[in-house]
Amino acid sequence: MIEVRRLVKTFGLKPVLRGVDFRAQPGEFVALLGPNGAGKTTMLRILATLSRPTMGEVRLAGYALPAQAAEVRRLLGVVSHQPLLYGDLTAEENLRFYARMYGLSDGAGRAAEVLDSVGLAARRRDLVRQFSRGMQQRLAIGRALLHDPQVMLFDEPYTGLDQDASSMLDEVLRRVAVAGRTVVMTSHDLPRAADLATRIDVLSRGVIAASVPQSEITPAGLIDLYRQVTRD
């Protein structure tokens, strides 16, 4: 589903990704861990078609990036630590706007369905700027699920969430993954990544320094591995 070979990204003269090789199969949930500045967000932005690779090959569902970016965008749902929602529109208006952008035939119906699935049906007429951070993040997931994408990219979705909101997001993420989608999530939260993902990759100094199936590692073993591969 996702195939990345020798991916290089530089900003000016500064290399951020130095030859990343990465694969994710359909239905796989990959947690991409790494310290600040390791290039996690840059890699996710390239997969999301928001940034062009400097060198290397990136394919999603057989489509090459950046040449076939429009086709790839139809298959993608993206959630970042920012909600990508308009504060002066209501929850429903935001979803209906994005439904039109994705060319969905029954935007109103789909928006209602999604609001229900993320537990915000009762707040559909409230302005997004009045929502708590947790509610905004749930609506952001709803926005990303609106067009029923095959691939979901989560860029540190837990940033700024309190305990309750994080638990609720865990539940939503599990539901997203159970539906058979390919999920890639960047995170600093090792225990949570070990709990949710089926595979854990560690990005360090611009390359994938470790890749282990979740079933083959304990939470304590993951912390040891993480420390080992990210040590200066």
């Binding site: 999301a48 928001l50 920012q82 504060g87 926005r143």
Partner: peptide, 11 residues
């Protein structure tokens, strides 16, 4: 709230 990215993600 990163809305520009939201627009750029639309197909």
């Amino acid at each position: 709230r990163g809305c520009l990215d939201g627009l750029l993600l639309a197909p």
